[in-house]
Simulated assay, not measured.
Amino acid sequence: MELVWATEQFVIGGQSYPGFPILLNDNMESLIPANEFFRSYLLRGAIGSNRSWPCVGRALYDFLSFLQAHELDWKDVDRGEAKTLIAAYRDYSKAECGLAIATIRQRIHYICQFYAYALSRGWVNRLPFTVEDRRSNRAKGFLAHVDASSGSVSANDLMPKKQQHLPKFLNLSQIKLLLGVIKNHHHKILIRLALKTGLRREELATFPLAYVFDPKAKGITERNVKITLNPYDGTGMRTKGQKVRDIYVSSEFWQEIANYVRLYRGERSSLTGNEAKTLFVNQMGQHYSGDGKGIERIVRDWGKKANLKAHPHMLRHTYATHTLAMLQRSKGDVDPLVFLQRQLGHSSIETTSIYLHLVNEIADEAVLDYDRELNDSIEFP
């Protein structure tokens, strides 16, 4: 019997969920334990974005296919072998398939969640893994004095140790080189907004035109303006996990955004009969679809022209690294890491702390000077 992995349009309570994973056998019959787990795990909101749901389906499909190919039963948690089923799959994924550690970790996480659900349903009598304490190299934050973890974190014993790859970012000369080759007004303002705010690709693609205003016309004299990214305000704004957050942008650059809308955006938006609600539109005058994949291509293509490897998330890393370095040197009243966490929309400050390692590795002061061409000094309200 071969397994078939697919997605379906799942509807519950009048709510439609496209791309919902489903496992079938070769007779197209439902693999009930796995599919019950999908409904329990995904519909309770364990993963914020349904675009990530297929990852859960893929993890379980690969694991169960591996077991089937080796004539193993997923319920055999008390097998006499020294290596558990999940450990065997982990080692196979690394040695035979050559999967990245990050991919293996993600899949094992979902597989372990499946077994936790199976235990709750009485399908297995125990979990095929245990939890152990591991030393953490995480950076100490502003709550270090009340942290009782002693630098350790809990992890299941099957999880391969996480490899820390520092994110890549552009230095100042590379940023100037990138911006210097861009001749398209629409592309340049988009990339500059990414460099000045750290917005994700999807956030750039769905950034609403309704958020744009003319600071001078409103008599705004503050150095920075606060923009609230709200997925629930009816503008079409989308953020990761649909979380509301505020970002701060210099009023000088926001004036440039307003000028861009007045002088350039109209020529594109007029190409279609339906006025797009997004700030940025493609060459057909329509909003960027597919969570901004067109923006990915734009950044990469201009990067190639500048002989650089660039992509939207690298622009986010660039903003974060230089902004954190600047805030650390300014010695203001606001904790730099906390501000950056909120600006980027990270759920955990541990995610933001990765940029501390990048800042510490920067030796050239010229790289640290993310000057006013790219990032005006931030003053806090």
Rank of each mutant, 00 (worst) to 15 (best):
Q286S: 09
G294L: 03
L279F: 05
H287V: 01
E275Y: 07
S270N: 10
G303I: 04
R300Y: 10
V281S: 05
Q283R: 15
I298C: 11
G285Q: 05
L271T: 05
R300D: 05
R300T: 09
L279Y: 04
G294W: 02
N274I: 15
N282R: 12
G290W: 00
S269F: 04
G273V: 09
S269V: 15
K277S: 11
G292C: 01
T278K: 08
Q286A: 07
M284A: 11
A276M: 10
T278Q: 14
R268W: 15
F280R: 11
D291W: 01
T278V: 07
V281Y: 06
R297Y: 12
S269P: 02
L279H: 06
G303P: 04
H287T: 03
K305P: 03
S269L: 09
L271I: 10
R297W: 07
K304I: 06
R297M: 07
L271H: 08
H287D: 03
D291I: 00
A276D: 07
D291Q: 04
D291Y: 01
T278C: 09
N274F: 14
S269Q: 12
I295C: 05
K305V: 05
G290F: 04
R300W: 05
I295M: 03
G285I: 09
G273R: 14
S289P: 00
K304T: 08
V281K: 06
S289C: 03
T278D: 06
K293A: 00
G292R: 00
K277I: 02
T278Y: 05
G285N: 08
I298L: 15
Y288C: 03
S270C: 12
M284V: 02
G285Y: 07
S269G: 07
G303L: 07
T278N: 10
R300N: 08
V281H: 04
L279S: 03
E275M: 11
G273P: 05
G290A: 02
Q283S: 14
E275V: 08
A276K: 10
E296P: 00
D301C: 03
I298T: 15
L279K: 04
A276T: 10
N282Y: 14
R297L: 10
V299F: 13
G273W: 13
R300I: 05
S270F: 08
Q283I: 13
G285M: 05
A276H: 10
H287M: 04
R268C: 09
G292N: 02
E275H: 07
E275K: 11
K304W: 06
G303S: 08
F280V: 13
S269D: 09
L279C: 04
N274K: 15
K304N: 12
G292M: 02
S289D: 02
I298A: 12
L279W: 06
I295K: 01
K293W: 03
D301I: 00
Y288G: 02
D291C: 00
S289I: 03
Q286E: 12
K305Y: 06
R268Y: 15
K305N: 06
G294M: 03
S289Q: 06
M284L: 13
N274V: 15
D291H: 02
G294N: 03
G273E: 14
T272S: 12
V299H: 09
G285A: 11
E296C: 07
